Simulated assay, not measured.
Amino acid sequence: MTTPEIKLVDKLTITFLVDNTIEWMTKLPPGFVHEVAQQLAHTDVPHDPRTGVPILDLENYCCGVHGFSALIQTEVDGSEPHYTLFDTGPDSRSLIRNIEALKPPIERIERIILSHWHSDHSGGMLSFLRYRKAHVPADAPPCVVDLHPDRPVARGISPHNTGKVIGRLPPDPEFAQIEELGGVVEKHADGHTVAGGTVWVSGEIPRVTHFEGGLPGAVRWFEKDGKGEWEKEEDIMDERYAAIDVIGRGLVIFSACSHAGIVNVVKDAVDRFLRPIYMVIGGLHLAGNDLTDRIPPTVDFLSNKLRPAPTYVLPMHCSGFVAKVALEEAFGEGCVPAGVGHKVVVEGNPEAEEMMHRATYQ
């Protein structure tokens, strides 16, 4: 397997714009910042005229919804940072509300990466492009939208062993709709680097584990010769992950839903880059009765079999409460209760990189 060309990053900043969870009070590791602290630091924070102190403007803070979106900021050698939006949440409202709350530089977001064609990750894309078009000067560079070419007509949910489709997910954005709002569509089935070579977007994730079996009950609508029908589709083969390599730290992995299995994702990243995993972020898809059996082998792999083990695991979105408890037992404070509104700053360590290089390649 050829090692992809990816630049070592001196600084990585992550802002979680959409997630299921809001967490304001739990102790966080160094480099993690709660939303309230960020809000009170804004220059335009409202002040109470009577007491003169800043107001917790809860009417305009972030909201939690079933979905995921993270703003990834990568910097190399003090050069201008690259801003990449990984997924866009589930609907037309939550991402925009949270953008207005956190005030990220939307004019500098050069690319959207869609992890896979599920509406809890694609649902905010058109509203973001519409908002960006209305609030960014017309001469600003357009936003590239990085997509897997295999867009489904429809995806649905069929409870295990019932044979009945109980509902379909809302439609994903169409290529023409993206272009109408100024987005530049790029279709990628294979792995590639973006953001000035600082972010790797995977191609198809190899399925090599025996216990990670996709999304139970997933179905897809197929049409041929004017007829259509639902067919079983549990593997979700269009799913992709993103990786950033921080100098002296290792790989930071964004797995938005882990339908491929987070162990498969991590195995692929380690095999490709021959680098340790520093941080695992996103939905681990371990929630629900059908997936409970996957929790012990997943936690065992991340905490015991993978060496070195990740420094931090951030189980978000669809990870589920039981999986979070199991990961906290295994990782202690290395299992971080991250949620919407949090900011994470990962500073590189050049001195540690030299030691890491020797340990990895000798």
Rank of each mutant, 00 (worst) to 15 (best):
E5F: 14
I14T: 06
I14P: 00
N20I: 06
M25W: 13
M25K: 15
K27T: 14
L28P: 01
L28Y: 09
L28D: 11
G31L: 05
V33F: 10
E35W: 02
E35C: 01
A41L: 14
T43L: 13
D44M: 07
D44F: 10
D44N: 12
P46L: 14
R50Y: 12
I55T: 09
V65E: 01
G67H: 01
F68M: 05
S69V: 05
L71N: 01
E75S: 08
E75M: 10
P90C: 10
S94Y: 02
E100R: 14
A101V: 11
P105V: 04
E110Q: 13
R111C: 13
S115D: 03
H121G: 02
L129I: 05
R130L: 14
K133G: 06
D139G: 11
A140I: 12
C143D: 03
V144H: 13
V145M: 05
P149L: 14
D150E: 15
R151L: 10
P152S: 08
V153C: 05
V153D: 10
A154L: 02
A154S: 09
R155I: 15
G156M: 09
I157C: 07
S158N: 06
N161M: 11
G163S: 12
D172H: 04
D172A: 13
F175V: 13
E179H: 03
E180D: 15
V185A: 10
V185I: 12
E186D: 13
G196T: 04
T198S: 06
G213Y: 01
P216Q: 08
P216M: 07
G217A: 09
I236A: 08
D245W: 03
R249D: 09
C257D: 03
V263Q: 02
N264G: 06
D268A: 11
A269S: 13
V270H: 07
R272D: 13
V280N: 02
V280G: 00
H285A: 02
L286K: 02
G288Q: 07
N289K: 14
T292R: 11
D293C: 06
R294W: 00
I295P: 00
P296I: 02
P297I: 03
P297A: 08
F301R: 07
L306A: 08
T311M: 10
V313L: 08
L314C: 15
P315S: 06
S319I: 00
G320V: 06
V322C: 05
A323R: 01
K324R: 15
V325W: 07
G334N: 08
V336D: 01
V340F: 06
H342R: 01
H357D: 15
A359W: 11
T360N: 15
Q362I: 12
